[in-house]
Design a protein around this nucleic acid. Structure first.
Lengths: 126, 126
DNA sequence: TCAAAAGCTTACGTTAACGTCAACGTAAAG
DNA sequence: CTTTACGTTGACGTTAACGTAAGCTTTTGA
């Protein structure tokens, strides 16, 4: 496993966000890059976490929700009770994702219908 | 088709939002209920549109995006060019939904893994 | 070598999506 | 007949998620 590092603008370009955005995520505690003096140095882990955040964003997750998600993937540390709580949270997420799945399928179906109406209307014109 | 009507609090209760929210959606031009004097009277169409908005919200759509969606389902009025544009927009939406689908599947997989790690950690304790 | 590019911090600005009063009208129920 | 519930219109407040700008240091390519 090559231990790559990235500058802030590397990641900004790769994921098409501004450096401001990446620094903001850090200030909110979602990423914790190393430092070379003042300069931030991002690891593969940081990069993956950023990826997680942005995937969360595409699904309408808030940053604090994404933060929880990141913590779910963290090294498992804690007692039994904490682990149970984690499993419950995972269950919640799963239920949310399933609801979103349903929503998407319904929408796709509706888009099909909408497109069909459009096509028909065009045919009626021509 | 029974032409039902609803009060604002009817809909608020049914969809678990505040009346303020519903009025806000109207002020943003997403719903246009009839009036009985001052009082708003909602039709089935209004109800469906509200449903659309909230489904959009669950998928992280902005209100203006949901507004576009509502317009996609509207009675097909317009010339050929407009209809082509509409079809393109529908295509965009479809691509977004497909991306979201992918995101969800990846997340579900990751949740599976996270849960497995939790379960294993618990077993190591006990 | 020196100007442009990239990095940093601090701080105020902005937008979306409502929340939260205030102040008032109306209608039914006790 | 008056309290209680529901409705209305402003209008200001709030939070999240950055944008934007200032002012300074560091790095780098011509």
């Amino acid at each position: 496993m090559a231990t790559n590092t990235y500058s802030i603008s590397d990641l900004a370009k790769e994921f098409d966000v501004t450096t401001r955005t990446i620094r903001f995520y850090e200030s909110e505690g979602l990423i914790s890059p190393a430092r070379n003096g003042q300069t931030r140095v991002y690891s593969d882990t940081d990069r993956v976490n950023l990826k997680l955040i942005l995937r969360g964003k595409r699904l309408g997750f808030s940053l604090s929700e994404s933060k929880e998600l990141i913590n779910l993937y963290d090294p498992v540390s804690g007692n039994k009770k904490q682990l149970q709580t984690l499993i419950e949270k995972i269950g919640e997420r799963r239920r949310m994702l399933e609801q979103q799945m349903k929503d998407i399928k319904v929408m796709q179906h509706e888009l099909d219908e909408a497109e069909a109406r459009c096509v028909e209307a065009i045919n009626n014109i021509v």
